[in-house]
Each structure stands twice: as structure tokens, then as C-alpha cells.
Nucleic acid binder design. Structure first.
Lengths: 197, 197
DNA sequence: GGGATAACCTAGGGATATTAGGTTATGGTT
DNA sequence: AACCATAACCTAATATCCCTAGGTTATCCC
């Protein structure tokens, strides 16, 4: 009998493709096995189980998203970089809705596996280096990084969940939100009185 | 045999409680039935199925979150209102992690059911009225509403997913992000050249 | 060619989602 | 107070799913 040539990465990829096509929570061991022309049990050699598979999809998505962002922002700085960064983020979420939702799941990813995946850490590092142009000092820099990531993720997430009414195209709001973020980063406020920094 | 006195709302509530305790994707028909002391099949009288139940949990969460925000912001204005609004949002997500994740799921909620639930719409309205203090004109107002909602949701979501390293307490970043949002709303930028408004 | 390794399979247990159809409590009617 | 219609709840059954245990067979290396 011919071997399918499975590997953990190929199983993960099949799961990721399936997630984009039918939604993450229709990604089942059986469905992935069918897509690969293999029996369910064969997957457990490469993947610990469904939970593990979902974690791997999340890490794959983080890696892919990071690569796209890195390519988009290469050689850019200032607002140019911010816009490229944000658009790459959003485009990835649009292109791979299933993969993207996998990244949001508060699942317990195998730490050893997570350590091998550069995506999540690199994504944060990229955000830091993109924000260097705005000359923020710590701890403001960290706060700004978290705000930018929160806003981008939140917008994309709400958009995907249909959170924006149809009155105004979300495209237009997106562009203006990036304007606003840029302005904010250029004029990052001092801590308010009473705030422990 | 004594009746359990089930109703769609009671089933939804049981599911919501379970979601907060064991995580949304461990909410199963069987588990909800067990918690209610009832057989699985009995639930289908009140709820169309698992998908429907999750949608109902999401709507319940939206309603509850909206009520909390309304109470927290009552009688406040300006930054005071913004902070109260944001803290109520975040507190709800912390208190009810399962319910909150239900709101993020891009599930197809029964439109007739969604129309009956005031939560999501009211939440947006509350955001609008909170932002009136900043005197923004449309379409900037809508964009600002979307930005604020994106940032709050994104922060809470990333925080729940463990997206923030432990280097700096997320609590501190949260406070500074609210400072930043307030400053941004007070100095909302004009559209950049080349942007269609 | 002959192991050793690992890829893949068969078989099966336990849990779940959902439907169909039967039984019994409950509230209003007379 | 008996009665009846409604709907709440149950039994039974099917299909699917996750996962484990243990057996076969392809593939690689000597």
C-alpha cells in the first residue's frame, strides 16, 4: 500500500486548509484524515490529538502572518511601515479566516512546540521595530506595541464576526483608524496624574 | 416525574455557566443536560442544537456586558466615562471568559433571535453616546466608535489568549492605553491626503 | 537480502449530536 | 372535580467523532 508521506506539518497544513474552507470548529480528525486519504488513527502518529492539531494550526498561522508582515514592511518606516504592517495583518486574516481564528483560541499549546515556532515572538519583535520610528521610551513603547496589536486584532476580529454595521464600509474606517493610530503614536500622551507608570 | 421547568433561557444560562467553568468548547449538549438533571434529547425542545445554543450564549453575553457597561457609565462623561466603559468591558470578560469567547465566534446566529436581543445594538449605541463628549462629526464618529471597540476587544482578547508577555503587567498597559485612547479622541486627526473619507 | 524503523491499517470502546416517537405532568375549561 | 390539550420530558436508535491497542507492510540502511 502506497504511503501518503504524512508528517506533522502536512497534517497541520491539511487542517489549516480545511479550517479556511469550512471553519475551524468543523476541523475534525476524521475530516482531516479523509482529506489526506488516510484513516483517522493514522493521524495520531504525527499529532497528539485534536487539541494539539489546533495548536499547531495556530502556530502555523502565526508564522505565516509574521512572514507576510515582515515582507510587507521591509524597507519601510514611519506611517508607511505602519500601514503596510496593518494591511498585511488584515489581509492575512481575510485570506485565511480559519487559520486566523485558530490564533485566538485560548488553547493550551505544547510549550516545547511553541518554543520552536518563531511566529508569535517575531511578530511582537516586528511591532517593536516598526514603532522605533516613533521614538517612544519604555515602558511607553511596550504599551504602544500592545495598543497597536490590540487595535489591529480587534478590528479584524470584530469585522470577521460581523460586528460592523453596513452603514459605512469597514474599508474606510480601517484607513481612518490607521491615520488615528499614526497620529497617536506621534503624540503619545504622558501618564495622567494618579497613574502609576 | 417532576418537571425541571426548562426554558430556552434556562438552558442558555446553564450553558453559559458551564462555558465559564470549563471553556466554551467543552460545552456540550450532554454536559448541559447533565448539569440540568435532564436527558440530552430534552434540550432540543428549547434549543435547535449546539450551534444555536452557542449563539444564544453569545447573545446573552452581549446583553449582560451591555448592561454592565450602561451601569458603569451612567452619569459619567469624558475620560471618566471612557475609563468606566472600558473597565466594565474588561471586567466582564475576566468574570465570564467562556461567555466572552462565545461572542467572538463567527457563528451564524439566528437572525430572528438576534433581532430580539438588544445587547449588541445597545452596546454600539452606548459607545456612540459615550463619544459624544468628544464632539466628533460623522463619519469620524463612526470610525472612532469602531476604533475604540476594536482596541478594547482586541486588548481583552489578546490578554485572554496569553498574548502579552509577563515583562510588564497588563494592568499597567491597560491604564496607559486608555490614556492614549482618550488623548486620541480629543485630537482626532483630519484625513490624510489621498484618503477618501 | 535482512533487519529495524516507522507509516499506515483494522478493530473497537466510549462519548457526542440529533431525530423519531412515546409518556406524563400541567393549566385552563367546563 | 373530571377532562383535555399542550408541551415537557423520556426511551430508543443512528451516525459521527476522538482516541487507544495492536497488527502489517513499506522504506531505509547495512
Amino acid at each position: 500500500m502506497a504511503r501518503a508521506g504524512l508528517t506533522a506539518d502536512r497534517v497541520t497544513l491539511a487542517g489549516a486548509e480545511l479550517a479556511d474552507e469550512v471553519g475551524l470548529d468543523h476541523v475534525t480528525m476524521s475530516a482531516v484524515a479523509r482529506r489526506l486519504g488516510v484513516k483517522d488513527a493514522s493521524l495520531y502518529v504525527h499529532v497528539r490529538g485534536l487539541e494539539d492539531l489546533r495548536g499547531r494550526i495556530a502556530l502555523l498561522a502565526a508564522d505565516e502572518k509574521t512572514i507576510r508582515i515582515a515582507e510587507a514592511t521591509a524597507g519601510r518606516a514611519g506611517k508607511d511601515a505602519l500601514v503596510a504592517f496593518a494591511n498585511a495583518w488584515r489581509a492575512y486574516a481575510h485570506d485565511h479566516p480559519g487559520r486566523y481564528t485558530a490564533t485566538q483560541i485560548p488553547t493550551q499549546i505544547d510549550p516545547e512546540l511553541a518554543a520552536r515556532a518563531p511566529g508569535p515572538r517575531r511578530a511582537v519583535e516586528l511591532t517593536y521595530s516598526m514603532l522605533r520610528a516613533y521614538a517612544l521610551a519604555e515602558p511607553d513603547l511596550t504599551d504602544a506595541v500592545r495598543l497597536v496589536r490590540s487595535t489591529l486584532h480587534g478590528f479584524v476580529s470584530l469585522e470577521a464576526a460581523g460586528g460592523f454595521a453596513h452603514a459605512r464600509p469597514s474599508e474606510a474606517s480601517w484607513a481612518r483608524c490607521l491615520d488615528a493610530l499614526h497620529a497617536l503614536l506621534e503624540h503619545w500622551p504622558a501618564p495622567c496624574e494618579g497613574d502609576p507608570s
